Computed example of a mutant assay.
Amino acid sequence: MKEFEVYSSLRVPKNSKIIIRLDGRSFHKLARDLKLVKPYDDNFYNVISEVCRDLFEEFSAQFVYSFSDEISLLLDNVPFDGRVEKIDSVMASFAASSFVMHYDVEFKKPPAFDSRIIPVGDGDILDYFRWRQDESWRNCVNSHGIAYLKSKYSNSQANDKIKGMNLSDIHEFLFANGINLNDVETYKKRGIAVYRKNKKVTGFNKKENKNQVSYRSYIYADWELPIFSEKFFKDIGVIK
């Protein structure tokens, strides 16, 4: 019966780099069930940050980036012999399990993520993450806009009002009502990333009878991301 399995032989090249993008399934309903604070719930993002760290460690990622309920992992070692069905199913289930493990609540329905694979070359990495960070900014503007409107109008009225507004309209509208998006926390505008950093360690070398400086890498959750640039990714060793 093995031959009846759909996509069982579909693989990505072993020597390629891939990005796995995970998206929360129906997380707008989950947000209502969990009574999340709008437009941004700090506890939710603390949990998502822990999920990113778990994914980073489990799958030896080069870089993990997240905003809202979306997580993107950059991998230079393709797991599971490149089997697409295995990568997608394991990544999505692992993310959902990690989310439940870190969220100390009783869920009404099991949360779930979907997963997709994007093969990339070194030249595509910056373009991809710039694209997703731009989406993080759009999400920030829209989230603050609809949250403010819903504080003044009914849900249906608020939804109708925001439909005809573009990003600059929403930004100006919020500013006119005392909300300056330039002042909100950086992670709300630019997302969160998990990657490795080096820290300087000074120890005593007994053999040479002197202090010696070395560097050790550690996993770092960055809540103060800059706007993504080639320099940023070079500095953290993701691209050459």
Score class of each variant (00 low, 15 high):
N15L: 05
H171R: 15
N142W: 10
K206G: 03
K199T: 15
V194H: 04
A176N: 08
S89K: 02
L74R: 01
N177T: 01
N211T: 05
L167F: 11
K161V: 11
K231S: 12
S151R: 09
I192S: 01
D127W: 14
P13S: 03
T202N: 13
D69A: 02
V6M: 08
K189I: 13
D169R: 00
K207F: 13
S89D: 01
L225F: 02
F228G: 02
Y128S: 12
D183G: 04
S60Y: 12
S154F: 11
V12T: 01
F99L: 08
G123A: 10
G82A: 00
L73Q: 06
V37L: 07
I146Q: 02
I87E: 00
S168E: 14
N177C: 04
F99Y: 08
N180L: 05
I87M: 02
E185Y: 06
S217C: 06
L174I: 03
S229G: 06
K150A: 09
K199R: 14
K152W: 08
F228Q: 01
E3T: 15
L181R: 04
V194F: 06
E208T: 11
R83T: 07
K163Y: 14
R21L: 06
S136M: 04
Y128R: 11
K210N: 05
D235A: 05
F63S: 05
S156K: 14
S68E: 12
L34H: 03
K189L: 13
A92K: 02
K199Y: 15
I48V: 12
F204E: 09
D23M: 01
V141P: 00
